[in-house]
């Protein structure tokens, strides 16, 4: 089997299995995320992703931002609602994004420093 096609088939198969597991479970976990967990388990079991899977994943992830464009154009369907509530939505998005960035980055830095000090390494 051509390795490149095998890599694509493997990724799609993991996603399919993830979607099936997501439907079967009571918690509404996202199929692709479960698919990533499955693919990770497979890579660990095989001791590495292999050249073809690595290059397929690299190529796809390098152009990740293109994949968001079609959903984004969907904004066109909600212009009326956004025109009416732009202030609340805008403040909520900006405020929450800034807060989340600071809390996540801050907690990571604090816990990482604490952990590295405990391990007796030089701090960050």
């Amino acid at each position: 089997m051509p390795p490149f096609l095998a890599a694509i088939a493997l990724v799609l198969f993991c996603q399919l299995l993830g979607e099936a597991l997501a439907r079967a479970s009571t918690l509404p976990l996202p199929g692709p995320v479960l698919g990533a967990v499955l693919l990770f388990a497979l890579i660990v079991w095989r001791g590495g992703p292999g050249e073809a899977l690595r290059s397929f994943a690299d190529g796809l992830l390098r152009h990740l931002s293109l994949l968001f464009v079609p959903a984004g154009v969907g904004l066109i369907q909600h212009l009326d609602r956004l025109a009416a509530e732009w202030l609340a939505v805008g403040v909520a998005l900006v405020g929450s994004t800034i807060l989340t960035l600071l809390v996540t980055g801050g907690v990571f830095t604090l816990v990482a420093r604490w952990q590295e000090r405990r391990r007796g390494k030089i701090s960050l």
């Binding site: 694509i8 990724v11 799609l12 993991c14 996603q15 993830g18 996202p30 199929g31 692709p32 995320v33 698919g35 990533a36 967990v37 693919l39 990770f40 890579i43 992703p49 899977l53 690595r54 397929f56 994943a57 690299d58 796809l60 992830l61 990740l64 994949l67 968001f68």
Partner: peptide
Amino acid sequence: MLGPATVCLAV
């Protein structure tokens, strides 16, 4: 391709 890209995050 968003789905397969999410799966590829495993790599």
